[in-house]
C-alpha cells in the first residue's frame, strides 16, 4: 500500500520557520474528508492563499520551481500540535516526500513514516545551509539517499543523518506496519490470555453499561 522510499533527487523548498504546527500545514476546516487524497491544494492554506483564495506571490510553494518541490527544509519542532494524519497526507498529495528539520514533533514524525514520507533530522546550522541551497531554486537539487543515509548537497558534499533502523527498513521495503505486527499474532494471543487471568477485573466495553 505504501510507496517505497529509496533515493530522491528533487527540488527542495525553503520554509525558514520554527514551530510549523499541523493547523498551519492543514487547517481544521479541511479535515472533514473521509479520504486520504485530495488535500494537496489545501497544504499550508493560510500561508498560501489570501482571504479571497488567491495565491500569495510571496509564499514559496507559489513560485517556480518550488511548485514541484518534493523536499521541504524547515526549522525546529516541525509538525507540532494536533495528531492529524491529514498533515502528512496533504504534504504527500502536494508531492513532498521528505522533510528536513532540526527536530519534529513526535506524532507527526511517526505519521510521516506510515505514509512513506522521510523526516530527516539535522542540526540547525546544517538546515540553515540546506535552506540556502534550496533558495538557489531549480538548478540546485538535493538528493536524499535513505539506503546510504546521506543528504547530498548540490556541490556534491554528503551529509550523513541518523534514522531508526526499523523505520528505515519499513520505508526501504515499502512495508505495512500492520502486516509486520500480525506476524506476531501468537504472542498477542498469549499476552491477552495471560492478562485475562491476571486482570480479570478489567470490564469489557459493551454498547450499554
Amino acid at each position: 500500500m505504501m510507496d517505497k522510499f529509496t533515493t530522491l533527487t528533487a527540488v527542495a523548498a525553503p520554509l525558514p520557520l520554527a514551530n510549523v504546527d499541523t493547523d498551519k500545514i492543514i487547517p481544521a476546516r479541511f479535515l472533514k474528508t473521509i479520504k486520504r487524497t485530495g488535500l494537496g491544494v489545501h497544504l499550508f492554506d493560510t500561508l498560501r492563499y489570501d482571504a479571497d483564495g488567491k495565491e500569495r506571490a510571496e509564499f514559496v510553494l507559489n513560485s517556480e520551481p518550488y511548485r514541484h518541490a518534493e523536499i521541504l527544509v524547515a526549522f525546529e519542532n516541525f509538525g507540532c500540535g494536533s495528531s492529524r494524519e491529514h498533515a502528512p497526507w496533504a504534504l504527500l498529495d502536494f508531492g513532498i516526500r521528505c522533510v528536513i528539520a532540526p527536530d519534529f514533533a513526535d506524532i507527526f514524525h511517526s505519521n510521516c513514516f506510515k505514509n512513506g514520507i522521510l523526516p530527516v533530522r539535522l542540526p540547525h546550522e546544517v538546515c540553515a545551509m540546506l535552506m540556502d541551497d534550496a533558495r538557489m531554486g531549480g538548478n540546485a537539487r538535493l538528493t536524499v539517499d535513505l539506503a546510504r543515509q546521506v543528504v547530498v548537497r548540490p556541490n556534491g558534499e554528503e551529509i550523513p543523518f541518523e534514522i531508526d533502523p526499523f523505520r528505515r527498513h519499513l520505508l526501504l521495503e515499502g512495508l505495512d506496519d500492520i502486516g509486520q505486527t500480525l506476524q506476531h499474532a501468537q504472542n498477542i494471543d498469549g499476552y491477552e490470555a495471560r492478562r485475562a487471568t491476571e486482570q480479570s477485573w478489567l470490564p469489557a466495553i459493551t454498547a450499554q453499561a
Binding site: 494536533s82 495528531s83 494524519e85 505519521n111 526499523f166 506496519d177 505486527t181 500480525l182
Partner: peptide, 20 residues
C-alpha cells in the same frame, strides 16, 4: 497518548502499537 490515523487502523486490527 494520541496517535495518527494509520496507528488507529493498527490498533483496530491488532490491539497493539509499535512503539519505543
Amino acid at each position: 497518548f494520541g496517535i495518527g490515523t494509520s496507528e488507529v487502523e493498527h490498533v483496530l486490527a491488532t490491539q497493539t502499537l509499535l512503539q519505543k
